Simulated assay, not measured.
Amino acid sequence: MTANAPLNGVNLDALAELGENGRKDRSTTKFSFAVSGSWDGGSKMTATTGSAHMGGFHDTARAGRFTMTSDEPIPLGSDAGPNPVEYVLQALAACYTVGLATTAAQRGIALDSYTIDIDGDVDLAAFFGVDETVTPGLTQIRAAITATSSNADRQQLEDLVAEVERTSTVRYTLAHPVEVITHLK
C-alpha cells in the first residue's frame, strides 16, 4: 500500500486502517472516555481526563493528561474559566471540527480555511427558583460554519456539513435523549 499524504492534517491511511479494523471487529469502534473533577470553592471546578478505552485498548496514559477548569462569570463565580454551557458549545464545535477535517479529507476536499461560531440559549429560571416549570437546559443551539476550499464548490461544502451534522457524536448526544446515571458514593 502506498502512503497517502495527509490532507487537512488527517492521516488517511490510519483512518482507512481503523475503518477496516472496525469492519472486521466491531469492538474496535467502541470507545469510552472519562473525566474526574474536584470542587475548588464557589462555582469553580478542576477536572482531568481519565483513562480511556479506545478501540479495544485501555489507554492509561490519558489519565490526568489534560486539565480543564470551569467556573461561572461574576456574580455567580470568580470567572476563572469557561462555564459548563460554554464547554458544551466548545464540545460541539470541536466535534464538528474533527468531522469536517476528516470527512473532507476522505472526500478529497482540501480545506483552505474553516471557522465555526456557536451560540445557545438557556433560561435559568428553575436554577434561580423563579419558575420550576422552565426546562433547565439549552433550548436552542445555533452553529454557523464558514469553510473555503480551492477544490470544492458550495454544494460539495454543503454536503460535507450535512454529513458532519449527521455523524457528529456530540450533536447526536445533544439532540437525542441519553441516559445519565448519577449516584452519591
Rank of each mutant, 00 (worst) to 15 (best):
A16V: 09
A101C: 13
I116S: 05
T46E: 00
F33S: 03
K185M: 06
G9A: 05
A144S: 13
T173R: 04
G55N: 05
T148V: 10
L100F: 11
G108A: 06
L100K: 00
A91C: 06
A152V: 05
E20D: 14
A175Q: 13
V35N: 11
A34H: 02
V134K: 12
I116Q: 00
D25C: 02
A152N: 02
N8C: 04
D117N: 12
I141P: 04
A101Q: 06
G42H: 09
L12Y: 01
L7N: 09
A105M: 06
R107V: 10
R23H: 09
V10G: 01
S51I: 00
V134S: 00
Q155R: 14
M54S: 08
A125I: 01
N151V: 04
S27W: 05
K44R: 12
P75I: 08
M68Y: 08
E132P: 09
D79L: 07
S36F: 05
Y114L: 15
T69L: 07
V122R: 15
L174H: 03
S78M: 00
T49A: 08
C95T: 04
L76N: 07
T49L: 04
P73K: 10
G137A: 10
D121C: 05
L18C: 11
S36R: 14
G55S: 02
A3H: 09
I141H: 07
T102A: 14
P136C: 14
D131P: 12
T135Y: 15
C95M: 05
L138Y: 07
T103L: 12
T46C: 00
E163A: 13
A47P: 02
M54Y: 03
D79N: 15
P82T: 06
T167M: 13
S32M: 09
T133N: 15
T167G: 09
D112S: 13
N11Y: 07
C95E: 00
E179A: 15
D159H: 06
F31E: 08
E165I: 08
A126E: 14
P82Y: 02
A93H: 07
S168P: 09
R166F: 04
V161S: 00
R142I: 11
T148W: 04
N8V: 09
N8E: 02
T173S: 15
Y96G: 05
